[in-house]
Simulated assay, not measured.
Amino acid sequence: MEQQHPLLVVLGPTASGKTKLAVRLADALQGELISADSRQVFKDMDIGTGKDLEEYQINGKQIPYHLINIREAGGKYNVNEFKEDFYQIFETLTAKKILPILCGGTGMYMHSIFQDHEYTAIPVNEALRAELRLKDIEGLRTLLKTYPPELTRHADLSSFKRLIRAIEIAEYLSHHELVAVKRPSIQPFVVGLTSEVGLRRKKILRRLDDRLKEGMVEEVKGLLEKGVDPEVLTFYGLEYKFIVAYLSGTLNEAELKLQLGTAICQFAKRQMTFFRKMEKDGVDIHWFDTDQDPDQLFAQVLDAYMQHKAV
């Protein structure tokens, strides 16, 4: 039987305290953090992505972290690149008997590890996507049926976006052979952080205020002055999208705070929806309430992980 390698995972919506908890766990368990955040990979995007790098210092020592500040701002990074980078780091840490702790809020990145679908390696076909966007959802379903069943078994018919991806995959597989990559066997223990919605909203808005005071607008202004395309910053979404609009005069300061606060709360809700979908797909998430005392939360999570490890 193939050896299974442990992976501790801390996931949750924005402003749930994932990093603080993960760092404490890394300190207690001699682990290192692997970030699962689609925007923290970019340099000079610190306040806007909530990197909170000072949180990686604990009890006088620096907890090592990975997949933060590995790309230049203005670039792109996708789920398949994340997978490749994750497995390289995971295997290095495992060989050194160091516990990898995956921490973040980008559910799609985490799910790619739990499910390890080789289809994430299939590239985007922009020309095909442009054609498919002209069809309605029934037209996409009809088109998908024209491909051999063995190429469409993976398909999720529930949304327009997923149908387009399913057709893109089927079209690619019609002309290319996909070579399966051998991956290490992972035994994850997944910690999910949750909160009462009203309290989560308060935390998000308080954190937004803090980040604006810390210079988030100036950070975005600096990126634009360095030559980062405003369209690319808008593509990064949330803070970058709204601050670019503010700097261009489309929003005033009050509108920026109100609209961005609302958008981040909506984003947190979508993150929770995705985590629940992961559970439906078979990911076992152990949920913990972040509205309690942080020391109590840490003790509960550490105890649950140690019990899991002992089994």
Score class of each variant (00 low, 15 high):
R207N: 13
L21H: 10
E138H: 09
G227E: 06
W287T: 00
G198D: 12
G74D: 11
M45D: 02
K161G: 12
A170N: 13
R24L: 08
L199D: 12
V220W: 14
L132D: 07
V311R: 14
F90T: 02
D27Q: 10
K269I: 07
K43G: 02
G237C: 11
T273P: 04
K97P: 03
G261A: 03
L302D: 02
G107Q: 00
T94K: 02
G50K: 09
L140D: 07
I34M: 08
A73E: 09
Q30A: 13
P294H: 03
V283H: 06
T194V: 10
V23P: 02
P6T: 02
V181K: 14
L212G: 00
P230L: 07
R39F: 10
L33F: 07
T142A: 15
E214W: 09
T290Q: 07
F90S: 01
A73L: 13
V9Y: 00
A304S: 15
Y109W: 03
T250F: 12
F288A: 09
T106A: 02
G249K: 06
E32L: 05
Y119L: 15
L251Y: 11
V191A: 05
Q57R: 15
L67K: 07
Q292L: 01
L143N: 05
I101R: 02
L102D: 05
E54T: 14
P100A: 04
I63L: 13
M45A: 03
D209C: 05
A36F: 09
P294M: 04
E72M: 06
Y65E: 13
H66F: 13
L302H: 04
D291I: 03
P294A: 02
A26N: 00
F189P: 01
D136P: 11
T120S: 08
N80A: 15
G75V: 01
E177F: 04
A245F: 09
V311Y: 13
E214Y: 05
A180E: 15
A263Q: 09
A130F: 11
G75W: 01
K309W: 14
D116Q: 12
C265H: 14
T250L: 15
F114V: 07
P230G: 07
H154A: 04
L157Q: 05
K145Y: 12
I186N: 08
D46E: 12
I264C: 13
E32H: 08
N252E: 06
A15R: 00
D210C: 10
G139I: 06
F298W: 08
E196F: 11
L144H: 00
L25Y: 03
D289H: 03
A22E: 06
D293Y: 02
A22M: 10
I264D: 14
I167E: 11
E91K: 04
K161E: 14
A130C: 06
